[in-house]
Nucleic acid binder design. Structure first.
Lengths: 167, 167
DNA sequence: TTAAACTTTCAAAAATAAATGAAAGATATT
DNA sequence: AATATCTTTCATTTATTTTTGAAAGTTTAA
């Protein structure tokens, strides 16, 4: 496979993966492009590479910066802004996990807690509802914590040990 | 909060969470409804509860059964089909993880491997591309394995120990 | 202060994904 | 074998999400 073909394939694949996980395609593609660029890239070049409009590029770059996984860079003597991606994958995973937890899981947990705390009457239906949503609350809470911990454990000997044992 | 309000809120929230994670809203809502129903539910009742069409109900139930997290049930003397959800959350998590890994992560891994194996010339750009996609391949592979292992470790003493220590 | 170079915003358009519902397909019952 | 009950399919419609691009907004420099 030739380099440009490979690069393109990578960007497309990363974009598709993103959209399956609730991140929009262009956002993931921009991120992919930046990840494999050794140098910071201008907005103009991003638009050109991905064949997207100025507005689209601008909005998605902003979103990526909000997530903390893309940085603006200023080059002296240049008026334009350049962009680079977080390239440390452990750091990337931590930031994505934190962001999604904050935006999606935490609010869902709040609702789960609320609805699991209603006063159930004696009916089977209501008792079952409370039992099931309570379990779900515990479960999601546990998963959320694990996500946090797992992302932190990359440079942690106990984590590595755990991985070794579990493999 | 009153029971019906709580039930509705739960279904809506679970649906929204689903769509943020690449599972369509109705599919997640049907699953939510079945999770909190102590008894198996007919298609008619699902349509009525969620205010959706017959076709929609049918297709999403099929998808849920393909994922292995909803089961058909036949009641003797009844012509209609009834549906129940997998209620064991550990089992549920395992099945979802397996399915998404199979459908999305494995194919992405294949591409990552491919593109990271191109012959890079001496240019910085190509060398960086190979280095970065190789790292990504290792990382995603590791994460995918961890997902597998994590879902299996619920009734596993070592896993529990790990959780305890890491908390 | 003005102009040039660049970025952001957002209403409208386009693309994509999901839902509908009527017809076709099953399956059981008489 | 005809009928009744229920489910699935899929072309069309509807809803949602994403993208565009032109106008407004910024920043820098002369």
């Amino acid at each position: 496979m030739e380099f440009n073909e490979a690069k393109n394939k990578f960007i497309q694949t990363w974009g598709a993966l993103g959209s399956q996980w609730g991140i929009n395609k262009t956002m993931a593609q921009i991120h992919a492009l930046l990840m494999v660029s050794p140098e910071a890239v201008s907005m103009e070049d991003i638009m050109e590479s991905l064949q997207i409009s100025r507005g689209n590029a601008s909005m998605n770059l902003r979103a990526l910066m909000d997530w903390g996984i893309v940085y603006k860079e200023y080059k002296s003597g240049e008026r334009r802004e350049f962009f680079t991606a977080e390239k440390d994958l452990d750091e990337l995973a931590v930031k994505i996990a934190r962001e999604r937890s904050k935006r999606e899981i935490k609010p869902a947990l709040k609702v789960l807690k609320e609805v699991s705390m209603i006063e159930a009457d004696t009916s089977l239906e209501e008792k079952h509802f409370v039992a099931q949503t309570s379990k779900l609350y515990d479960f999601v809470l546990r998963a959320d914590n694990m996500l946090d911990k797992a992302t932190e454990m990359n440079d942690n000997w106990l984590g590595r040990l755990f991985l070794k044992i579990m493999k």
